[in-house]
Simulated assay, not measured.
Amino acid sequence: MFSLLQEAATTAVETTEGAIVIDDAATHGADAATHGVDAAGHAAEAAGLPQLDIATFGNQIFWLVVTLVVLYLVLSRVALPRIAAVLSDRQGAVTGDLMAAEEFKLKAREAEAAYDKALADARTEAQAIVARNRAEIQAQLDQAIAKADAEIAARTAESEARIREVRASADVSAREVAQDVTAELVRTFGGQADDATVGAALDGRMKGAVQ
């Protein structure tokens, strides 16, 4: 019985010593890891990269969040509203320009239609004026021709009357001359020249010549 108790005590002591040895090994391992991290941090600092230092990760994350928040506030309160205002103004200007261009286009079409209508009206009016002037000129020409015909007819009648008068006067003068010449010839040949007989002979001769 005593030997059994002695063996159990020996086993417990050995187990306790093994656990202590394991705990010491774990402690030494953790210390080695810590020293490794510190060594890596010191190596990073020595290499010029302090942002890789694990000890400053908390501060870096904090200032990163602060920077992002400040950047968001600046963008949302200052930059983005200005950009939105500029885009809105530009969109409004483009829309206004498009509306003005469309309005000018409509006005140009209306002006072109008005010009075409005015041109057609002017052409129609010009044709009417030409026709009216032509009719007036034709009427004046007809009136002038009629007046000229009347004047020509009057002058022709007057000329014919004068010709008849001249012819009658010439006939009388010729008869008188012929009568005088005949009477003189009769007297030259020793005859008696009776004016009535000579006149009758001349009248008969002249009538025969006229017929």
Rank of each mutant, 00 (worst) to 15 (best):
H42R: 13
V78H: 00
A146Q: 12
E165W: 07
V69P: 03
V69N: 03
V177Y: 03
A122Y: 01
A46T: 15
Q143V: 10
R167T: 15
A126Y: 03
S76T: 00
K107D: 09
E176V: 07
V86G: 06
S76W: 00
L75G: 04
L73G: 01
S88K: 11
L141N: 14
D116P: 01
I83K: 05
A101I: 14
A120N: 06
A150F: 06
L119T: 02
A100C: 06
A108I: 07
Q179L: 15
T67Y: 10
A84D: 07
I61C: 14
I61E: 15
A153L: 02
Y115K: 11
A135Y: 05
L80Y: 00
R90P: 03
A144M: 03
I129D: 10
A178L: 05
L106R: 15
Q179E: 13
E45Q: 13
L119S: 02
Q60R: 10
E136C: 01
A47W: 15
A148P: 05
I163K: 04
E158M: 05
V177K: 07
S159V: 11
E102Q: 11
T95I: 08
S159A: 14
A47V: 11
Q127Y: 00
R109D: 13
D116T: 03
A47L: 15
Y115D: 06
V94W: 13
S169E: 12
S173N: 09
I145L: 07
M99D: 15
D97W: 09
L71P: 01
A139D: 07
R132C: 00
A120Y: 04
D171A: 13
A44G: 08
A157T: 05
V172R: 12
D121W: 03
A118H: 04
R155S: 10
L49P: 15
A178I: 03
I152V: 08
R109C: 08
V177T: 04
E158K: 06
Q91W: 11
V130F: 03
I163N: 04
F62N: 06
A148D: 08
M99E: 14
R175G: 03
I83P: 02
Q140H: 02
E176H: 07
A154T: 13
L141D: 10
L98W: 14
R164Q: 10
L106E: 13
T124R: 02
E160F: 15
I163L: 09
I152S: 11
V69A: 13
L75K: 05
A100K: 12
A113T: 01
W63F: 11
R155H: 09
E165T: 06
A100N: 11
A46W: 13
E102D: 10
I145W: 05
A139C: 04
S169H: 12
V94A: 15
G96Q: 13
D121R: 03
E125M: 09
R77F: 08
E176L: 12
I163V: 10
E45H: 11
